[in-house]
Amino acid sequence: MGGTSGMDSTGWDERYAAVDLVWGAEPNRWLAAEAAGLAPGRALDLAAGEGRNAIWLARRGWDVTAVDFSGVAVERGRRLAGSEPVDIAGRITWKVADVRQEVGPAGAYSLVCVVYLHLVADERRRAVRHAANAVAPGGVLLVVGHDTTNLTEGIGGPQDPRVLFTPDDILADLNAEANGPVADWVVERAERVRRPVRTADGETRDAIDALVRVRRSR
């Protein structure tokens, strides 16, 4: 997904239809690093786009539910999974749905990832609460996105400050009453991280991302 609430699924369908791969084929670097040491189980990939992270997880033995509100992106992800040299198609369930709504059974997933989903604060909070609700006891919730400081200190990403966030914003979302007490979560990482980006003129600059990894304690 990765857009603002002002762009509906039709807008994202058009964006995905315009190019081969909007986000590329490689998994997000933070998802790959944070999930590398986890034992494969059930994963929920919210705002999955064309499935680059879902496919990476499935290659490593995860059973993944990949959710995006763009039907074009979901269909492309399904085709990409089917073209893998190793049969992983059966490990991924593709679903067209709005991640601002409940999209997975409560407490069912050992990993829930939300990677570059950018919404205005109240919609983001709703999506994070739904994501958190899907995490099983002992499971991990991973949220990654363009940090608020990226607008002035980094490069790329949305230019609307209303849809950017900080690690503290995500922790506050988790502390919302609808999701239970914050003690249910052990904070394993909550920090700004720098991601090198090659610019059009060949230089390398850092984008600044917010990364939050929490584990459900019960």
Rank of each mutant, 00 (worst) to 15 (best):
G104F: 04
G154F: 02
A132E: 03
V128M: 02
D147A: 15
G104H: 06
V99A: 06
D98A: 09
V144C: 11
V112E: 03
V135I: 13
L117V: 15
E102L: 13
R124T: 08
V128A: 01
L117K: 02
E153H: 14
N175K: 11
R100H: 07
G145I: 00
T152R: 13
V112G: 03
G157P: 03
D98F: 11
V103E: 06
R124D: 04
V120P: 10
H118S: 10
P181Y: 09
L171M: 13
D160F: 00
D122Y: 08
V114L: 14
R126V: 15
F165L: 14
E123R: 12
G156S: 12
L119Q: 10
Q159Y: 02
P158T: 11
P161A: 05
V120N: 07
G104V: 02
D169E: 12
A121M: 05
D169W: 08
T166C: 08
P181W: 11
D168H: 13
A132D: 05
D122W: 13
G107L: 10
L119C: 07
L141C: 08
A108N: 03
S110V: 08
G180R: 08
V140T: 15
Q159G: 15
G138S: 10
V114H: 00
P167Y: 02
L117E: 09
E123G: 02
N133Q: 14
G157K: 02
C113Y: 00
E123Q: 14
N175E: 14
L164W: 01
P137I: 07
H146M: 11
P105A: 13
E153Q: 15
V120C: 04
P181K: 12
D147I: 04
L141D: 03
V115N: 06
P181H: 12
L117A: 15
Y116H: 15
L174A: 05
V144F: 00
S110G: 12
E177G: 09
L117I: 07
T166S: 15
P105R: 10
A132P: 02
T148C: 04
A172K: 09
P161K: 08
